[in-house]
Design a protein around this nucleic acid. Structure first.
Lengths: 153, 153
DNA sequence: CTCAATGCAAATCTTTTGCATGCTA
DNA sequence: TAGCATGCAAAAGATTTGCATTGAG
């Protein structure tokens, strides 16, 4: 296994550092995330990867998603539909950090990047305080706003 | 069905307004939440209620939790262990709103109320902006900080 | 060549649904 | 009494595990 998109080559070392191998299925799973802005579930990923590599097994998808989350390459989300979803922690083009609006009626999820700067600043201060008080090493955060979307109001 | 803790009597009307009935199982499920500060899963609740009402069915617990969440009496949370958890939206003693610290290693969840005021103020402003921009009616929010707890660091 | 990675099948677990019966208002 | 609520059994889904085989390094 060699070649592939440039950003994938950079992951080789990252995998090795963890004692993991960068195999074709793993690379194909990663690529699925670079082709969408959506929050993909295991089955979503399976569907995508299956198109270019029909031999893929669902089990491998589950194991790889967990692995990538542990490595910090993906973030894990749950929006209330019973499926765990994942997103690239940092997009190939350095996408901006974002938060979510979730419709409690239809389940629609909207990513927003507005106001993020103000949020981030405050959150960083809070992180500092919480880390000290609770002796907790904070790595990331999520903000979810719940309510009714345009359609469901 | 009548009597019970004072705060439960107040719910009678709330149920009626929705066209629902305040039955013994429902009251017992609600009481389980008043006896703990924890985020209870359906099976947690089932276990609690089963002690005082062995006839309870798991299905009823699931249906009641969903109902109470829809009524706004409970909030729904997912912390990554595959179980949906619930918490009283407003405690019987008017507990303060809080946010969560989640250990990605052991799954421990810490509630914190520090910094809440600053957070709330900012979030309210942001809510206003988001509501307008996305034509979204926001009802509540969650902030989760992820990382490693004292034990797991 | 060695050991991690994979895929399949089966097992687990949580949550939902169908339906006959019970109970609240 | 009417219609919501309940409990059981079965179904549906998502995720995990055991194990023999494959393949990356």
């Amino acid at each position: 296994m060699q070649g592939g998109p440039p950003w994938v080559r950079g992951l080789h070392g990252r995998f090795r550092n963890y004692g993991y191998r960068l195999t074709f299925p793993r690379q194909a799973i990663l690529e699925a995330f670079t082709k969408t802005d959506k929050h993909l579930s295991a089955i979503d990923v399976y569907g995508q990867v299956h198109k270019i590599y029909p031999g893929i097994g669902l089990t491998t998808v589950y194991r790889t998603l967990e692995l990538l989350a542990k490595m910090g390459v993906l973030f894990r989300f749950e929006f209330g539909d019973g499926k765990t979803r994942y997103e690239l922690a940092e997009g190939p083009r350095g996408q901006r950090h974002h938060h979510h609006l979730i419709c409690v009626n239809c389940g629609r999820v909207i990513d927003y990047t507005d106001f993020i700067d103000e949020e981030i600043e405050l959150l960083h201060q809070i992180e500092k305080g919480l880390s000290k008080k609770y002796n907790f090493k904070i790595t990331h955060h999520q903000i979810h706003f719940y309510g009714l979307c345009e359609e469901c109001k």
